[in-house]
Design a protein around this nucleic acid. Structure first.
Lengths: 215, 215
DNA sequence: CAATTACTGTTATTAGCATAACAGATGTTC
DNA sequence: GAACATCTGTTATGCTAATAACAGTAATTG
């Protein structure tokens, strides 16, 4: 285990490896080479080897990587062998979708509390969790040892929610609102905004002028 | 307008600029400097100037950028001044959320059709759109001139849906399923998977061992 | 058991992107 | 209207990340 500074690009590929390895394990594949992985994941084999080598010598020359062992190692690197509690603010459709989705996963990461500012939503059930008012957020985050916060509120409220999360002591935030959040540097933020994704995809469309048949 | 190859990193920042500029316009700010923008968006001012300069001389020395003019220009670059119809497959919670969300935007990009494979979902209403069966997908995509496809189905079905989209003639795909899609090179794919986001955030958490108070 | 093949881990090279530096232009102030 | 401040567009520099190359090791085959 080296102590080099690992780039974010590397870290973001690890979950991709993990996902595919789990699939391989389900298909009872025992070992896999960087070339196989590269083909399936559209990545350069050398890059995969280098990524993994940052964290240890997981492979065997002439053979490849033991699937089960590598799964175990990546889960450890990503801290998925710890219990990681997650809190979510914003019980809208997207919030609902995320609650369902992550529960589906067989990992130690779980959404354990949901909050909303709207009176009408408080007390309603999402995936066996009762939606709590914002006033309870800080104490719940502390009591339930919530370490990651997810924000699925409208843009205008996102900064306020982020500040509450920070005050409560969350270590990282996953933000779905289309704004750049300002938080202290010890809190990691990732913004996952699909309008950005959609708009940047539009750039690559072929230019066709403005007239389009509308029925 | 130069014909250099624009990097994806640049393209992905354009929607971020656009969003903030629209906010500035609503607040009746007339001009803005790269420094102001950089401060608000956590970006280097030089980078912003360079990004914009790829596409033209939009700013004025000593002054900055005219907000309205720059909005217009970026919208043009991103082709948001054209009508861009979008189709979505997967009428689950996430699909619902996306339908609501994009409709909210005042842009020419709209989800105009929703499909699902499940019998029980077909015919139901999502945001004034009737969910159609997969069998109608290809003809609808062609008739309605759908150019971007969104995939919000489970991982196992995503590749099949992608192939249908490609056959129907879609130019780009936004994929929310946690798989790497294989499509011809003329179709642009962006995968927006939040398990990847969440898992890579976990990497940055402080190591705390495995014991965690669970109520 | 030598020769061959199939792999990794690591070092070297290339390419791409972000930052810095600066020249040129605009407005403002005294 | 000269001196100064502001801010862009562009060129130069530095750095980070991706790719390629290769040495070393394990299994396999004749």
């Amino acid at each position: 285990m080296k102590t080099l500074k690992i780039s974010e690009a590397v870290v973001r590929r690890l979950p991709v490896y993990l996902r595919h390895l789990i699939e391989l394990k389900q298909r009872e594949v025992l070992t896999v080479s960087s070339q196989d992985l590269g083909q399936k994941l559209d990545l350069n084999p050398a890059q995969i080897r280098k990524d993994l080598a940052y964290f240890g010598d997981f492979g065997r020359k002439g053979i490849g990587y033991d699937v089960s062992y590598l799964i175990q190692q990546i889960r450890h690197i990503l801290k998925l062998d710890q219990i990681i509690n997650v809190g979510l603010v914003g019980a809208g459709k997207l919030g609902h979708a995320l609650c369902n989705y992550t529960v589906y996963l067989k990992d130690n990461m779980k959404i354990v509390a949901v909050f909303d500012a709207m009176e009408s939503k408080i007390g309603t059930d999402i995936n066996n969790l009762k939606v709590q008012p914002m006033s309870e957020m800080i104490t719940t985050v502390r009591n339930q040892h919530i370490r990651i916060g997810i924000i699925t509120v409208p843009a205008a409220e996102a900064q306020y929610v982020a500040e509450q999360f920070v005050e409560a002591g969350v270590e990282a935030i996953l933000n779905f609102a289309p704004v750049i959040l300002k938080v202290p540097s010890h809190v990691r933020v990732h913004t996952a905004d699909f309008t950005t994704d959609l708009f940047s995809l539009a750039y690559y469309l072929t230019d066709q002028g403005k007239e389009v048949p509308v029925q």
